[in-house]
Amino acid sequence: MTTYHFGRGRARWVPYLLLLPGIFFYVLIALGPSMATAVYSFTDATGLKGAPVHWVGLDNYKEFLFMGQASKDNFAALERTLVFCFFVTTIQFGLGLFIAVLINQNLKGRNIFRTLYFMPVILGAVIQGLIWSLFLFPIGGPMARVLEFFGTRSEFLGGQPSEAFAWVIAIQIWANMGTTMIIFLSGLQTIPTELYEAVRIDGANSWQVFQNVTWPLLTPSVNTNLTLNIIGSLQAWQLFLVLLGYRNGTQVLGYLIYATGFGQTSGSVTSSFRQGYAAAASIILFLLVLVIGMAVQTILRRREVRIMG
């Protein structure tokens, strides 16, 4: 006979009833708009209330993928998005793990370090951008002074697109590393100390302890962090807006979507509101996130089963 946690009879439906508010808000805030975006991507919607919306079929997709040099620029932005994702994910993951292991030790003032490392996370993108714009100010800013000491100089965020892009990668890592670190830290604190004591008695050195105890038992945290880092970096756009604005050679797909959909301009040059086209670009980004996300999930799940059983 089946037993239900909440009892028998009508009580069986209580869990579903309790889930309803969550499902309602999920549909309202996430699933509904996502479905609407998919529909919008086949229209010339402007996003303006009262403006007529026409069905344009695959025109937006054709324009994004195959129309002149603009589509080549879109592919360049796509490539830049993947490069951004790779560097942010790997460095943020590695650094977050390293710092989590470090401040998981019995150090003096470790709570202060935890707070300091996590602090950038609670700042908004605008504040983060302001801090770094000042830090990287090329005329007498702190970083410019350091370079001056070594007899060199840089334009930092306003200079070569590749350099500006690299700075955004660094700032993205700085801004989000705290979350990665906290997830690893919580994972580290679930590992029983007896295991460490046992392998130490067996004569394992620090690296062997990490390799054979810490790393395998951190698998759930590894999976969570990798997934969050990959998806987060593929969708990043706010720091690009705040730090660089609309600059050739620096845009990632997320920022292109924002700029196109909301008529982002340069100075007072007017542009059109093209939310239908931006929706098509969003769907392409969604597919990219989906493919990469699912592939990573599959690999991680297999690894988890292999390690954790």
């Binding site: 324009e63 040099q69 589509s71 080549k72 050739n248």
Partner: peptide, 20 residues
């Protein structure tokens, strides 16, 4: 025109040190 690349403007900022 739709399909034009991102450099299709007479902008001085394409030159170094602002551009490439």
């Amino acid at each position: 025109p739709k399909g034009a690349g991102q450099f299709a403007n007479p902008w001085a900022s394409y030159f170094k040190p602002f551009g490439t």
